[in-house]
Design a binder for these strands. Structure first.
Lengths: 347, 347
DNA sequence: CTGTTAGCGCTTTCAC
DNA sequence: GTGAAAGCGCTAACAG
């Protein structure tokens, strides 16, 4: 592999001049020299060594992204999708993504190591929580990062998130428009932050439509298929007149459970009951009935995250660093009507 | 961030001595000096700078893995799962994974760039094909790589793959043991290499059981849900006595299509017809009926790949560099009987 | 055993 | 405009 020295020798100039040329130092090199150098570069096939550049500029052009734990057979929602677009956005900005893993308990040593060995210039976080220790840690260490998802409102850090309140509000309005009046929701435990926003959207839509929300219309459970089954099981045991006619699941995974639970109780989804999800997981369109859900604009989100992170690495504090993007309702047929026009009554 | 110089000053030794200590040069440093140095390191909190080390040793400790294209809403089979374990295996070996993307047409410039800038020490490939240009390219450039999956048998390169022949052989034997005699297969186009091995397994099992394989019992199509639907559609139009009673889909994705197609034609899967898949995609267990399939031992495969690649980066040629691992049959209920004991007859 | 020194390949003052 | 030289932080001969 040729180095800058070889180019210098070949072009009959100093290595400094070569450096000026490849770094486009404006007007620092005469047109003729510049041409000679480029020709030499072409001739011997030279490309600057990234590691040497990085050492010199004390950067790495690498963004760390911790691949969240995936248990065998577990569903990975849309995060694999996110990873792809994140890498693509990073590349467009001259960066690469370094994916790393860690367990629930050793995350701190992994992050510490990455920072102290100067392995990466910054981090992208996803799957954030209230009091997320990683955010607290990076904030304390003043290390650049941007998260996909919010955490404690009082913490000041850069994030991009989908507006879950808005997303569920749209689903709820869609169901209300379809004629439903008894709409229930399957939510995550109360300590989930994104879960909280989504429930807010549900409550807001119900309030505006002046529809009642009995206490037992919000079922809470962990992010597992079983949660959806359990909720449906419960509601199906209610007297007919108290049963919800539509259910909003806080995630597609839980919606799948609800689908199963409903059918297990003899209900035909899309006819006897409407079920909507949230996330638009890859297989959602292949379920029977295909799942009506909400999709986050992942490509755009990835691009925003990289842009923010790049600014933070450069030491700037972008004025707008709390970004909320609206998700999009994907109407399929688990809520019956494939189009809002085909409304139906509940009784 | 403290450097090796700071440690040297703090410990009252030269930087070379510090380097010897942190690199564990055996017996090169006296016990007392070693201790002093470690104390100094602890005191000022020093960690070697990876970039500097890399420049010195002309390596990167980075393994490139091209994240394959994921179209919105498309199913990602088990490769996201693989990525996780690959990263984990790499970390255990002192490496990190650099995930990068490319389109169908610009892959060569992306690989060239990564190599010439010395961005990575080697590559891991997945989704390999016959005449895979990436393999040909890396072979020609003598750049270290290991692939997850085979290609042309005459090409000599390191790979780890699951034994698809063996996997499908097991499924077929399972179905035969259940009592099926008319077993069909939905395969990929003839130019698919892993597809070929899987079909071989099917043919071998049928031959050994002396069961006929009519020409129209092998349906070929691309890796899409629709292919499964099309195949079922076709077989359901056959006279009853010629219809297969069991279908092996070459992938879970296609099996999902077959499931849909069967139900669309009024068949109850697991009762009127048995359908098996291959891959064990995350959602397979949540389908109704849950999909009987074959699972590849991803964690073990990842570890083997990293081990091989590490040897190749070190310039060694591992004697055993064509590794085939047997996959495991996962019996659920899309083939009726949850256990082989509950066999059933076909007529 | 320990220190001096010469790079790894590149960028960037600072002279000329 | 161009080049000499000083590093970025570290490793590894080579002396002593």
């Amino acid at each position: 592999m040729p180095t800058i020295k070889d180019v210098a020798r070949e072009a009959g100039v100093s290595i400094a001049t070569v450096s000026y040329v490849i770094n486009n130092k404006d007007g620092a090199v005469s047109e003729s020299t510049r041409k000679q150098v480029w020709e030499a570069i072409e001739r011997i096939g030279y490309t600057p060594n990234v590691t040497a550049r990085n050492l010199q500029s004390s950067q790495t052009k690498l963004i760390g992204y911790s691949w969240h734990r995936v248990l065998p057979g577990q569903v990975n929602s849309i995060l694999d999708h996110f990873t792809y677009y994140l890498a693509q956005s990073a590349e467009a900005a001259g960066y690469h993504i370094l994916t790393f893993t860690h367990d629930a308990d050793n995350w701190e040593s992994v992050y510490t190591d990455l920072i102290r060995t100067k392995r990466v210039d910054g981090f992208v976080l996803s799957d954030t929580q209230y009091n997320d220790p990683r955010i607290r840690f990076l904030l304390d260490h003043k290390f650049p990062f941007v998260s996909f998802g919010r955490a404690n409102p009082e913490w000041d850090f850069a994030y991009v998130d989908t507006d879950g309140r808005h997303g569920v509000l749209e689903i709820a309005n869609y169901l209300i428009h379809l004629g439903h009046r008894r709409i229930a929701m399957i939510a995550w435990p109360e300590d989930s932050i994104s879960g909280g926003y989504r429930v807010d959207g549900y409550l807001e839509a119900m309030r505006k439509a002046k529809l009642p929300v009995p206490a037992n219309y919000i079922w809470r459970g962990v992010h597992e298929v079983q949660t959806g089954c359990d909720a449906m099981e419960y509601w199906c045991r209610l007297p007919k007149a108290e049963q919800p006619t539509a259910v909003i699941a806080i995630s597609d995974l839980i919606a799948i459970g609800a689908l199963n639970g409903a059918e297990a109780n003899g209900l035909v989804v899309g006819k006897d009951i409407s079920i909507a999800g949230y996330d638009d997981v890859p297989l959602g369109q292949y379920l029977r009935p295909a799942l009506t859900t909400v999709r986050q604009p992942i490509p755009e989100i990835s691009a925003m995250i990289v842009r923010l992170l790049q600014a933070m690495i450069a030491g700037e504090t972008p004025p707008k660093h709390r970004i909320l993007v609206p998700p999009r309702l994907i109407v399929r047929n688990s809520c019956g009507a494939p189009t809002p026009e085909q409304g139906r009554s509940t009784d």
